[in-house]
Every structure is written in structure tokens, then in C-alpha cells.
Amino acid sequence: MLEGKVKWSNSEKGFGFIEVEGQDDVFVHFSAIQGEGFKTLEEGQAVSFEIVEGNRGPQAANVTKEA
């Protein structure tokens, strides 16, 4: 699992980007967020995730919010 911080997200469009130190930003779709209820990410929020190869390149999977 990698750790990063949410660079920005748009809940209306359903995606955002995660900033990882020393690496390119990672695309995240809201379907990759683990948990119940409305899935949102806040700018600056710490997250853990895996990287998978998506249709348009690397993207985050199994995203969990850190406490």
C-alpha cells in the first residue's frame, strides 16, 4: 500500500488526484474509495491505496482514508 494526500477532488464529477511524494500524481475515481455511504475525499486528506493500470494509465484502487 502507498500513502499520499488528496491533491484535489471533485465530488460532482466523481474523481480527483492523490499526491505521492517523489512520484507523479495518481488519478482516483470515487468507485475506488472503500467504505459505506457517500464516498468523498477532502483536499489534503491522508489516504492509503494501491496502484492499478486503468484505461488511461495508472490509477488508485482500494483507497482508504487515514484517521
Rank of each mutant, 00 (worst) to 15 (best):
M1V: 13
V63I: 05
Q34K: 10
N62K: 10
W8E: 02
L2D: 02
N62I: 05
N55V: 14
N10F: 07
D24E: 11
E50T: 11
E3N: 15
G57M: 03
K39F: 09
K5Y: 11
G14I: 06
S31C: 10
Q23C: 12
N62Y: 06
F17H: 01
V63P: 01
V63T: 01
G54L: 06
V6Q: 00
P58K: 11
G37A: 08
K39M: 11
Q34H: 09
F27E: 04
G35P: 04
D25E: 04
G57E: 01
Q23K: 11
V52F: 08
A32V: 08
M1P: 10
I51Q: 04
N62R: 10
F15A: 02
V28R: 00
V47D: 02
N55Q: 13
K65N: 06
V63L: 07
N62P: 01
F15D: 00
V47W: 00
L2H: 10
G16V: 04
V6R: 00
V6L: 07
K13E: 06
F30W: 10
D25W: 06
G35Y: 05
F30D: 05
G22R: 03
F49C: 03
F27S: 01
E21L: 12
F49D: 01
E3Q: 15
T64H: 14
F30R: 06
V26K: 01
A32P: 05
L2F: 13
L41N: 01
F30S: 07
G44W: 04
G22L: 04
L41D: 01
A60N: 01
I18F: 02
S31M: 04
I18C: 02
G57V: 02
V20F: 04
I51C: 07
A32N: 09
K5A: 03
E66G: 14
E50Q: 13
G35I: 06
I18M: 02
N10W: 07
R56Q: 09
T40K: 09
E21M: 11
K7S: 04
G4E: 00
K7D: 01
E42C: 15
F17S: 01
F15C: 05
S48C: 14
E66W: 11
Q23T: 07
F17A: 02
D24P: 14
S11E: 10
A67T: 13
E21C: 14
V28T: 03
N10M: 05
G54C: 10
W8I: 04
K7H: 05
E19Y: 11
V52M: 08
F30V: 09
A46M: 15
A60T: 01
L41A: 01
E12Y: 10
F38Q: 13
H29K: 04
G44Q: 03
A46E: 09
H29M: 06
G4Q: 00
G44K: 03
G57R: 05
D25C: 08
L41H: 02
A67K: 13
F27R: 01
L2E: 04
T40D: 09
E66A: 15
S11V: 14
V63F: 00
E50K: 08
E50L: 10
A32Q: 11
L41V: 07
K39S: 09
W8R: 04
G57K: 04
A67Y: 11
T64W: 13
E50M: 11
Q23D: 06
L41E: 00
N55K: 14
F38K: 13
Q45I: 09
S9V: 15
H29E: 06
N62W: 06
G4S: 01
A46I: 15
E43F: 13
A67S: 13
E50V: 13
K65E: 05
E19M: 12
G16N: 02
